[in-house]
Design a protein around this nucleic acid. Structure first.
Lengths: 253, 253
DNA sequence: GAAATAGTGTCTTTAAGACAGTATGTG
DNA sequence: CACATACTGTCTTAAAGACACTATTTC
């Protein structure tokens, strides 16, 4: 994400040795986790209102410092469990934000993660200081950029630090990854009609997809197997339900 | 890269507050940079022999600690300048390695980067404690895995820490990115015949490509423009030279 | 049987691969 | 003109899109 090179900061004075006392290195390591779900044709992210006033009362992604005794991955899982009550979800590292001034109070390097979860698993989490905000993506394809989180009236919520950039990167990653990785299923329940999977893809990509083509490619991928079950009474012909199946007999093109 | 969830490490005792004194957080932040080039149909990476005996004398990627006054990106650029004498190259963040025990001596979180550079720009760097090692990729497609660095006789060099994993991730990233991003040019001089670009792609992907298809798609991409020049005397018909052109009038599928 | 969505048949479009042909330099 | 590689013509194959048609369920 940083193809444009700049001049080195301190080529001589900086610590280029491999070993130094860590007292010399007062950089805090934190994690920020974008917990994403899909509902009603829109992506949503969990935001928390920091109790401390330092962040200006802006809404923020759940985050916290990494404890020296835990791995960075474990810290992300801990944050997710503590602030969203969620475990056992798709959780993947996104990018590490290391600008000097990204947090104006102290030097923090933050490893951003994103998690994908079915909407139904987020029922009880939402309280006064937590919200599931719909995301507004003002760009197409994988162009990338900032992404806004909206309130009930569709107005942009103020986001702390570089969290709008993090959300932008999440959407960009999702769009890129959807091409070849089975991540749409993470946003769905165990059994789902193919139409629901297509809606997920359309929501992530931000554009409509061809119905017949989508079904053909999904069924040909071998990632999906019939659950031999139908939707319950829906006022019209019920769709067949499918479930995700990891076998994936691919040949990499 | 961590889709499989595990249980949280310390859900209660860990620091979930946003603000702590950094004395409480003795985690060192480092960068490791995989400087990659292509030559004779093989990818190569710059390795250094650490002078300190702590790493067991294994070969390692150039790396160093991040100074509190510099951004993580700047630290990567500094390391590249200091250990490879290289500036103004394609440099992109790869992944952050945060396992507790990855460095047995102290807790280090390392942000890995990869850089791409034309082989000719690495002429004078190689000394006794630095080598450009060919990479052996024992897997196909984007399966991923460890990647070995070889010595002159094709034997695997011992690599420090998780650096074989980092190199594996580099190759995986390159293969994925080559599909949609103009990164092949980073490994070529300014003017190049299309055959050289195809060789780069084949080297990265580890499989042969169809000549006619490759030329069609490259020329159709608009990423390349004729330099109105030919190769110099090569004992046969000289190829037309092209140069990279960023315009890229794409429509995102 | 009307309504509504599920699911498919078929043609078109686009991109990639196979393969062999022609083109154009050097010696 | 022999050689070697550059470049292209053309057919085949594979995948995606357009679009309309049939299928099945509820009310």
């Amino acid at each position: 994400m940083t193809p444009a090179p700049r001049k080195p900061a301190s080529a001589s004075s900086g610590p280029s040795r491999r070993f130094a006392r860590f007292e010399d290195l007062p950089i805090a390591v934190a994690v920020d986790v974008a917990l994403v779900t899909a509902e009603a044709g829109q992506l949503h992210a969990l935001l928390v209102r920091p109790t401390a006033p330092e962040a200006g009362g802006d809404w923020a992604l759940p985050g916290g410092f990494v404890d020296p005794s835990e791995s960075v991955d474990a810290a992300a899982e801990r944050v997710l469990a503590a602030k969203a009550g969620i475990e056992d979800v798709f959780l993947e590292q996104l990018y590490t934000f290391g600008a000097v001034e990204r947090d104006p109070r102290t030097r923090v390097v933050s490893v951003a993660y994103y998690a994908l979860v079915e909407r139904a698993r987020l029922g009880a989490v939402l309280q006064a200081d937590r919200r599931l905000a719909p995301l507004s993506v003002p760009w197409e394809g994988e162009a990338g950029g900032r992404v806004e989180a909206l309130d009930e009236k569709g107005r942009a919520l103020p986001l702390a630090f570089d969290h709008a950039d993090i959300l932008g990167l999440v959407v960009k990653r999702l769009r890129g990854k959807l091409r070849y990785a089975p991540i749409g299923f993470e946003l769905l329940p165990d059994r789902f009609p193919l139409r629901a999977l297509q809606e997920i893809h359309e929501t992530v990509l931000g554009r409509p997809l061809n119905k017949h083509s989508f079904r053909r490619s999904v069924l040909a991928s071998g990632l999906v197997a019939s659950a031999n079950r139908r939707e319950k009474t829906v006022g019209h012909r019920p769709a067949e339900l499918y479930r995700f199946q990891a076998s994936k007999p691919r040949k990499d093109r």
